[in-house]
Amino acid sequence: MRIECPICGSRDRREFYYQGAAVALDRPAPDAGDAVWDVYLHLRDNPAGETRDLWQHEGGCGAWLVVTRDTVTHAISAVELASDVKRAMA
């Protein structure tokens, strides 16, 4: 498996640290309530298909990435800088 880091180019997956769902970008306000925080921290979809994950290019440039991939075919359809994705959410 290889991931196309927007900064470093195509790299072996061993250079990357896997975090989990990209939901982590969407940190709730402190007073958002238990249900919202529960969803943010614990409830995860388990899709057979497209998923968006956070990876860090820890053995490279250090950039956090949002990787869109298919859990059935393992095909990676997009790799974005997490900072760009977060800015676009604002």
């Binding site: 975090q19 970008l25 940190r27 860090q56 956090w64 800088l81 997490a82 900072s83 977060k86």
Partner: peptide, 14 residues
């Protein structure tokens, strides 16, 4: 270190 990178890139890139 990874945590600080997460906070600065994923939560507060501004």
């Amino acid at each position: 270190m990874r945590h600080l990178e997460f906070v600065t890139q994923c939560l507060h890139p501004e």
